[in-house]
């Protein structure tokens, strides 16, 4: 558990960090260090230079404006889980963050590091996809944003360019009459999600007007389930079960704890339960 030799640089600003990225080929950005450091200690990652952006206050914090919540990339999971702003506007986001790791991990790990690493068992990606979040990136040539649904490209692969820093995510606030829920089937060893189901439903006058379900852990990237059949229904248990059973993953991931087939099955069960929980909260 001893990493290979590397140089350490600490950035004092986003601009400086971008400059260091330009300067050092194959350098890695480190925020909370909870994905990168374990990889380095196992020598699965051997970056010649680690650029520490962990102290950039400009990338920290949660704020709401104009029906959208901005979460800085260096905001810790603990802060997200405890955020009053998120509890009011996107409670499922805070709920999912509270499931990550343990208290020590949540106190150090950041949302930016988490989604840039893009572990398929992470709790956050399905929630961001469900909520229609946008991920904001900055490079020396400017800024851009990517829809969360496009950001996660494959196993441990995202749309972050080599010269870019993930600065924040913007999450649209959930409207009134909307209930949401995140349910996790936890891996007993790693604590990652074998399956994590994020659901939201909007109910007006006893009828569903909008519904969404995104399941993590089953595929390399979050799997969106088409639950549009729920719109117009009264969200009966049968309707929910039928909608959740639409979960399909072409090439589900599997390990010695849970095979791909089993993950798909649990994804359907947890999808159903998450939708029912969201309904009950709407």
């Amino acid at each position: 558990m001893y990493p290979a030799q590397f140089d350490y640089r600490r950035a004092g600003s986003v601009d400086e960090a971008l400059g260091l990225l330009q300067e050092h080929e194959d350098a890695k950005l480190m925020a909370g260090g909870h994905s990168l450091i374990p990889m380095m200690k196992l020598r699965l990652a051997q970056p010649p230079v680690v650029i520490d952006i962990g102290r950039l206050d400009e990338l920290k914090g949660i704020s709401e404006a104009g029906g959208s919540v901005r979460v800085g990339s260096l905001t810790t999971h603990a802060d997200i889980a405890a955020s009053d702003v998120l509890a009011a506007h996107c409670p499922v986001f805070a709920e999912a963050a509270g499931h990550i790791g343990d208290a020590q991990v949540r106190n150090r790990g950041t949302i930016g590091g988490n989604i840039a690493h893009a572990d398929p068992g992470s709790d956050i990606p399905p929630v961001l996809v469900l909520l229609g979040a946008s991920v904001h990136l900055q490079s020396p040539s400017g800024t851009r944003s990517v829809a969360a649904g496009d950001f996660f490209q494959d196993l441990l692969m995202t749309d972050v360019g080599e010269d870019e820093i993930l600065t924040h995510v913007d999450v649209p606030a959930l409207g009134s009459g909307t209930g949401s829920a995140y349910l996790k089937f936890e891996h007993p060893a790693s604590g990652y999600a074998v399956v994590g189901a994020a659901a939201a439903v909007t109910v007006q006058d006893g009828r569903c007007t909008a519904a969404g379900l995104v399941v993590g852990g089953v595929g390399a990237v979050p799997t969106t389930v088409d639950v549009s059949s729920l719109v117009g229904t009264d969200l009966s248990d049968d309707a929910i079960a039928a909608a959740a059973s639409g979960l399909d993953a072409e090439d589900p991931i599997g390990d010695i704890f849970a095979s791909g087939d089993y993950r798909v099955h649990v994804g359907k069960v947890y999808g159903k339960r998450a939708l029912a929980a969201a309904r009950d909260r709407a």
Binding site: H187, P188, A189, S190, D255, I256, F257
Partner: peptide, 11 residues
């Protein structure tokens, strides 16, 4: 040993 780490071996 495919359960060689605490990520795979559940204590």
């Amino acid at each position: 040993l495919v359960s060689g780490s605490l990520m795979d071996y559940a204590v």
